[in-house]
Design a protein around this nucleic acid. Structure first.
Lengths: 210, 210, 210, 210
DNA sequence: GATGAATGAGCGTTCATTCAT
DNA sequence: GATGAATGAACGCTCATTCAT
């Protein structure tokens, strides 16, 4: 996409019900387009068209095109965090770490599966310099959750550098899932992938797990 | 005025000394721009400008803008493969797999370190649909090398699904290194990263490795 | 940056008053440029400039530059056909064929006279391969009208090959008028030309007409 | 084609044998390209390539691209005039005008047939403003020949305005032949076309010819 | 507020022409 | 003379953004 002519002022926050609906429609339209046709198809005109509003309205709620992608990214970030929190909150201490990990990874896999095209675009765009900070912030939150889980788990940890370990484990899982998503016809079925990743992480992190 | 005719094949190969210099200048300029300002800044006009040539010259050697990126990608691909081959060729059978793995990863880390911005862009662009095939082809070659290494190693393998294991291991290493590269100020020094990754892979792949 | 996507269908039809005005301005500007400076001067930038709009507006209503020329061509085609139909509809059976033919040719001559430069360009462009189909379609419609006229006329026809005769007659008239148009200072006044052409066609087509 | 940056000085005339050969090769190459691929394919680079010389050499003999087309046009003009002169010179006074006319038209038809693509391009380009003068000059020479023939012929002429008559007859023949050339699949075979045109012209020009 | 026609900077690309070798 | 690498003005076209209605 072209680097945009940046506007000078921020837009007002949507407060009323109708506004919320419009914002929602715009985000949903963008998701649909990204998922089916990719980033290049997500022009402001097309988004407005699919959302059933005018471009003018679009700019009433988003100061520039990238703001839409940012909002989307944020939405998916929250969704992923929520998923992790929900799984970990379910009395995971009483269960074997393997079960907890498996549940988390199945959740992530289903998240990706629900809109592969969208997550592909977000992953790519997430790597762009402009959006790097947002991704780092998200990563930090994920890592905090992981560390918290590791500390809370009764299992004996192998790794002295907890922070490094969480980083490596997280990136490995994230990237492998994404790579499978990006390969046209995955040679590995989802369940097997989850199994492999659980094993990878367990053996890496937890002593004596064989 | 003229109906546009997309050229299908590569332009003439540079034979003379001056031509070689021009091609080199274009590639170098592109690397520099990608490394410092990212992909969007790498317009044909800007590349030509930095290379100190005219746009016309650029098109004398590259059929279209993307061909420059492709050439660059190919160059880095070959470099990475060459590095892996070189390390694995060095009597690795006589050494402990840990040493071999460490050597490979140190090589990759230094490759990334040499031009972080470039590798960031190549990694990102490698995810785009248009270039997905090239990346898959590269991945397949890497996976073949890894599998060959695993088979040749005397060490007892833990994983029944060799192909899946190679995929998971490769993506984990690749992504973690890249993620560290992308984070502005890495919290993990390079040696520690290599150590962690070697450990990750060994425990995942090789039975009884502790 | 972006892979170019050639639009296949026409742009949105102009509905509002302002839109209509813009389309009109674009067509008028194009006619003016073609008439005065020829086809090569009719760049999108120049057309927009003369029309007093931006290039963007131009592409809001025409999918590509050639679409403007096509629209212009179509407009003139329809105008010419309408003229022929109108003249032939005027109780021509009751009149001598010479009068009918004269009326038709006077109409065509005045059509050409109204914008010689435009018709010159359209005639030339009509010869280009890209637009040949459109011209052939127009020619076929004209020939059908001519054949219908010849059949309806009570006059005894000299020519056994009606189709060939219509073709020869039509091309002769068309080309001679055009040639006169193209010569800077016509040596033949319009009335004389019409007279000559009527005579040419009558003697060629109609038996005993002397 | 793009309107060229016009050079300032004329080129030296080719005097030596090698020069003549180069000029010939360039013209032949241009004919071949025009005939097979049309005007847009006739770039200076391509012409030089087909001619087996360098672009530099091309510019040694032709001051600019259009000069090549001009030379080609001139060559075809001379060829056509030569053909007419040759036929008319063959004791045509002793023969019936119909035979003479038939011979001329057969000659023209075979000229066109020998390289339809070339003549299509020349016809189109000949109409462009830039080259209009050259065409008018050629037309004038043709008309002179025609008038001379008409005067020399013993046959009684119908038309008082000899100049106008020559013009009408010439344009009719030229355009009809060209139109047949331009229509993809001519519905009229060449012999029939010649027959029709001879009849058209004879009845138009010569009194009592039935 | 909502609309959507209008804007125009900027992109990738071409090719006639030049000139150092 | 010949070469062909280099030039760069100019083209068609896109789309994020604005603002009169």
């Amino acid at each position: 996409m072209r680097s945009p002519r940046r506007p000078q002022r921020a837009r007002k926050l949507p407060r009323q019900a109708r506004s919320q609906a419009t914002v929602g429609a715009i985000l949903d339209a963008t998701v649909q387009i990204l998922d089916r046709q990719g980033l290049d198809a997500a022009t402001t005109t097309r988004i407005a068209e699919v959302a059933g509003v005018s471009v003018g309205s679009l700019y009433q709620y988003f100061s520039h095109r990238d703001a839409i992608l940012n909002a989307l990214q944020e939405r998916e970030f929250e969704r992923a965090l929520e998923l992790m929190r929900a799984v970990l909150a379910r009395d995971h201490l009483a269960r074997h770490p393997r079960d907890t990990l498996t549940a988390v990874m199945q959740g992530l896999a289903s998240l990706y599966r629900s809109a592969p095209g969208l997550h592909r675009v977000l992953a790519i765009e997430g790597l762009r310099v402009a959006r790097a900070d947002r991704v780092h912030a998200f990563d930090a939150r994920v890592l905090a959750i992981i560390r918290q889980f590791l500390r809370a788990t009764g299992a004996p940890l192998r790794r002295p550098r907890l922070e490094a370990a969480a980083f490596v484990a997280y990136q490995s899982v994230r990237a492998t899932m994404l790579a499978r998503l990006l390969s046209g016809e995955p040679s590995l079925d989802e369940d097997s992938l989850v199994e492999e990743l659980v094993d990878l992480v367990l053996r890496y992190l937890i002593a004596g797990d064989a």
